[in-house]
Computed example of a mutant assay.
Amino acid sequence: MLRRLFDALYAPLATLIVVPVTVLVCLIVIAGPTLPIRRELGRAGVRLMLASIGVPLRVRGREHLPQGPCIVVANHASYLDGLVLTAALPRTFSFVVQDGAANWPLIGLTLRRMGVIFVNRASALQSARLTRQLIRRLHDGEPLAIFAEGTFRAEPGLLPFKNGAFLIAARTHTPVVPAGIRGTRRLYGGDRRLPRWSAVEIVFRPPLRATGSDREAALRLRDLTRQHVLALCGEPDRHLAPSAADADL
């Protein structure tokens, strides 16, 4: 009963606080003169947003992030996942997200100014172009962060992983770092309009590598990465791995 009472009081109060803070952070990021500065402002801004509503962000295992290019693959449980992962990763990381976010008022412009890479899964042509772009970025030494489920649902559980990130990793001999995000689903997940208090934790595990550059090696890497993420996220396994024909990012 006490927890329900706390949630009932916390939700509107946290909303009244975090909305203006979020708008302020977005405007500051948009005004940043260079991409590195905008990303640093974004990282600090996310921590400010969480602190303003009393949410601690704990990050463990950052020492597992390799120097140079890599692909961080994390579970996806909430709209907040990209934000908290931004705060946890160095500013050199570029994020790959669904293109629908590019049209969100103010948020979309902020994401574009932070160098987010948008993917349109409905277009095979654009997906192919994006794949070539990501390969070039990795060859240039740029690390990436991807939510391999591609989306999230209201009910808890890790969805199947898309194949694209792992095909790219195998082809470019890029290490994949499994990451688990906890707490964001309770904080602002499902179909709720108001937040509930929850600590947020992100854990990185040592990088994994494909045993070859062919498709089978990529799919083995996908399955192994998913096992690690499943163990880290603390949610049930909602589905078996996708078929070999599913190569979407």
Rank of each mutant, 00 (worst) to 15 (best):
212 G>F: 09
141 G>I: 08
191 D>W: 12
110 T>M: 15
237 D>G: 04
139 H>I: 07
36 P>G: 10
161 F>I: 08
143 P>G: 08
103 N>H: 13
241 A>C: 06
6 F>T: 05
69 P>M: 06
129 R>W: 02
248 D>R: 11
238 R>I: 02
21 V>G: 00
231 A>Q: 13
192 R>D: 05
73 V>S: 01
37 I>H: 02
147 F>I: 12
134 L>F: 08
237 D>W: 10
164 G>S: 11
57 L>G: 05
245 A>G: 01
120 N>W: 03
69 P>H: 02
166 F>L: 02
243 S>A: 10
180 G>E: 09
139 H>E: 15
113 R>P: 05
103 N>W: 05
170 A>G: 03
76 H>P: 10
140 D>A: 15
42 G>F: 11
101 A>P: 00
30 I>R: 04
17 I>M: 10
54 G>V: 14
3 R>T: 12
203 V>S: 05
179 A>N: 04
235 E>P: 01
214 D>A: 01
38 R>A: 09
171 R>M: 06
25 V>F: 01
50 L>I: 08
9 L>W: 14
229 V>F: 02
138 L>Y: 09
249 L>M: 15
166 F>G: 00
18 V>N: 04
25 V>I: 15
71 I>M: 13
60 R>V: 05
27 L>G: 01
184 T>I: 07
154 A>F: 00
249 L>I: 15
45 G>C: 07
16 L>W: 08
213 S>M: 08
152 F>N: 05
35 L>A: 09
47 R>L: 15
11 A>S: 15
99 D>M: 04
65 L>H: 07
18 V>Q: 10
173 H>A: 14
4 R>T: 13
230 L>V: 06
147 F>S: 07
79 Y>A: 14
